[in-house]
């Protein structure tokens, strides 16, 4: 039980990443694939945050001059996640706009039916 308690964030993070990857690999609907990518992104963000976590730590913010700098979590992964979230949003927006166009052209989002370029 203590194994689960100690590693619950890692398990959750990689659970999300692997679920996302599985969706990308086996699903045929483009929207589902995009959702899979998004789940994977979320998992990665959780993983990065978990890397920098310190047990019983607080946020690294000195909101008043009295706050002491003991037991603060690592600020670097948080900064990285901020960047990673923005990049995720950017890719998501682009993917959805492509999905709109794809639907206009092909009338379907089923990736099995969109195979004109295979030789």
């Amino acid at each position: 039980m203590s194994f689960l308690q100690n590693n619950i964030y890692y398990i959750g993070a990689f659970g999300l990443i692997l679920i996302g990857l599985l969706i990308v690999l086996v699903k045929h609907n483009l929207i589902k694939v995009i959702i899979g990518l998004s789940i994977m992104d979320t998992g990665i963000n959780l993983f990065l945050i978990a890397i920098g976590y310190l047990r019983n730590g607080t946020a690294p913010i000195f909101s008043s001059p009295e706050v002491e700098s003991v037991l603060m979590v690592d600020p670097v992964p948080q900064a990285l996640v901020l960047t990673a979230i923005v990049i995720g949003v950017a890719v998501l927006a682009l993917a959805l706009s492509l999905a709109i166009r794809l639907y206009k052209h092909f009338g379907t989002l089923d990736l099995r039916k969109i195979k004109e370029l295979k030789w």
Binding site: V33, A95, A99, R101, L102, H105, L117
Partner: peptide, 9 residues
């Protein structure tokens, strides 16, 4: 569009 979405994924 088709190749772009493949590339993106």
């Amino acid at each position: 569009i088709e190749s772009s979405i493949k590339y993106l994924i």
